[in-house]
Structures are given as structure tokens and as C-alpha cells.
Simulated scan of single mutants.
Amino acid sequence: MRKREGALSDVIEEMRHATGGCRAGRVSVGDLIGALDERGYGAALAVLPLLELTPVGGIPGFPTLLAVTIAIITVRMLLGYEHLWAPGWINRRTLDARRAEASLAWLKPVAGRIDAQLHERLVRLAGPVGRRVAGIAILCVLLTVPPLEVVPFATSAPMVVTSLFGLAILFRDGLLMLVAGTALAAAMTGSLWLLFGGG
């Protein structure tokens, strides 16, 4: 299968450009979403969850804001809307532009390694039906993010699972879709244990 060279790296570079020239050194969530719009849902679902793994992910409340944003984007994908969208109250939320740019720069080499490994395979599993299944799975795992904020680093697992599904959609990689499904089962089991059995 033909590989989509540099897909994730290009997406992150576009988001880095969105952090430049921001007024008062702030970048809005809407600016970041806008930078992803022409790349589509796969790019948004692949990159946005990875922000939780960067320095901005340590901002209190940010994982929940990110989960809500991703959930809205996912619902729109399931409903068949063409463009990304988030409500005004999310779009107006801002981050320190330098911190956001540094976080995206941190992701750039990670993206390069991902680009080198992923490509189209088992494409039918990543087709329209696979996208719908992935969307429903993403919404389920995102439900665990707000309560998990009270546990240090616990929100990383559901965000990684979400990113795996996004990458599978972006690269049309059916094998990765299967891996994401396995990761979902593990993440949900771990999350439920932390919430109801870990104490």
C-alpha cells in the first residue's frame, strides 16, 4: 500500500504556525482547531489527544477541556459533518503561545517516527464502518477523562487510545484500528479499576 509521507508531521507543523503571531502571546483553542480543519477528522483525533502528553497537559482542567473538545469533534464526524467545529466557549479558551509551541515542537520528532511506521493496510477495517465504530469507542473512553483527573497521569491512557484511533483513520490503517480496539479494552479496564477498585 502507498504510504502517506509526512502526514502527521505536516499536521503538527501547521499547528505550530498557528501559535505564531498570536496577540498578547496567547493562542486560542479555536486557532488550533482551525489549523486542523482542512486535514480532516483523522488529523484532529490523532493530534489533539497527544497534547495531553506534553507540558500543556499538566494545566489543571486542560485534560477535561481537551476531552470535551474531542468529543464534540467526534460527534460531528459521526453525524457526517464535513468541517471541524467547537462551540464558542471552547474556541475562546486560550493557552500560552510559547508553551503551546514548545509542546508541539516536542511532538514533532514523535510524529516523524509515527509517519515512518504507519501506512495503508487492511483498509476495509478503517473504512466508513470502521470510522463509526472508532467514533463510538472514542466517546466511551473520553467519558473516563474528567473523573480520572484526580489521579496523577491517569488521563494519558484514554488520550493515547483516542490518538491511536485517530491515527488509524488518518492513515487508513486497519491493523492499527485493531490495535486501538485492544488498547481501548485495556484502558477501560484500568480506568474502571482506578475509579472503583483502586482505592
Results as ranks from 00 to 15, higher is better:
61 G>M: 10
30 G>D: 04
51 L>P: 00
70 I>T: 13
44 A>N: 04
53 L>E: 15
49 P>S: 10
37 D>V: 02
73 I>R: 02
80 G>H: 09
71 A>K: 13
27 V>N: 06
58 G>M: 02
71 A>E: 13
51 L>V: 00
27 V>E: 05
39 R>F: 06
60 P>W: 03
74 T>L: 08
55 P>C: 09
34 G>P: 05
77 M>W: 03
52 E>D: 15
67 A>M: 11
30 G>K: 04
42 G>S: 06
59 I>W: 09
64 T>M: 14
45 L>S: 06
46 A>F: 15
54 T>E: 14
29 V>L: 13
28 S>A: 10
42 G>Y: 07
80 G>D: 06
65 L>C: 09
39 R>K: 06
57 G>Q: 12
54 T>L: 11
48 L>E: 08
29 V>T: 03
44 A>L: 11
49 P>R: 11
72 I>E: 14
69 T>R: 14
81 Y>I: 01
62 F>P: 01
39 R>T: 00
83 H>G: 05
55 P>V: 04
79 L>Y: 09
56 V>F: 11
57 G>Y: 12
73 I>P: 02
26 R>E: 15
51 L>W: 02
37 D>H: 06
82 E>L: 01
27 V>M: 06
72 I>V: 15
68 V>D: 14
70 I>L: 10
34 G>L: 06
76 R>Y: 13
49 P>V: 08
74 T>G: 09
35 A>Y: 00
38 E>W: 02
45 L>K: 09
49 P>F: 14
67 A>D: 11
31 D>A: 14
67 A>C: 12
53 L>G: 08
32 L>F: 05
64 T>Q: 14
40 G>T: 01
43 A>H: 11
81 Y>T: 00
84 L>A: 01
29 V>W: 05
32 L>V: 09
64 T>E: 15
42 G>K: 06
48 L>H: 11
65 L>Q: 12
77 M>H: 06
73 I>W: 05
50 L>Q: 15
41 Y>A: 04
32 L>G: 03
72 I>M: 11
40 G>A: 01
58 G>Y: 02
40 G>V: 01
85 W>K: 03
69 T>L: 15
54 T>I: 07
48 L>F: 11
44 A>V: 10
83 H>R: 14
38 E>H: 04
79 L>C: 05
59 I>Y: 09
37 D>W: 03
36 L>E: 01
54 T>W: 09
47 V>P: 01
59 I>Q: 09
82 E>D: 04
38 E>A: 03
62 F>Y: 04
49 P>C: 13
59 I>E: 12
32 L>Y: 05
46 A>H: 15
40 G>F: 02
79 L>G: 01
85 W>S: 08
35 A>P: 00
63 P>I: 10
77 M>D: 05
48 L>P: 02
48 L>A: 02
66 L>N: 07
43 A>F: 13
79 L>D: 07
40 G>S: 02
76 R>I: 08
42 G>E: 07
56 V>C: 06
78 L>M: 15
69 T>S: 15
52 E>W: 12
38 E>Y: 03
77 M>K: 09
45 L>R: 08
